[in-house]
Amino acid sequence: MPSLAWRVRRRLAPVAEVVRPTVASVVETLVAESEGPADPEILDRASHTMLGRIQAMPRYIGLPMMAATLAFDASGVAFGRRPFRFLPPEARARVLEAWRNAPVGVFRTFVEFYEKMGTFVYFSEKDEAAEATAGREG
């Protein structure tokens, strides 16, 4: 009989899809900081990969991370009356900065996770896309 963990993961797959637009918007905001506007196609792939990463984490970390992502999205209401994913770039940057400098450690840890993993995934996908293009041209 499949383990409870396996069954939980199956059940949570639709929930994860709800989180994906927020994951994409956080990565987009971080990429904007480091190299300017993100490529939409690469961002789409990166958000899928990133979500896969969160789902692959041990459940006792992955589930709180998903919940924190939803909370982060909701916190956009306090800054621009809309969830984070619907905010304009300047307002998104303000939300991110507030969480980055929050007095509560878990808020900072959340931003640090996305800063490291989100940018790593995006730039990896970008490298891969560039290599694929070079391969086709070569």
Partner: peptide
């Protein structure tokens, strides 16, 4: 490689660009 550098440079904001 570049993705690894970016990962460890996270949080540098404009300076990173």
């Amino acid at each position: 490689a570049l993705p690894h550098l970016v990962m460890w440079l996270g949080g540098q904001g404009e300076a990173l660009r």
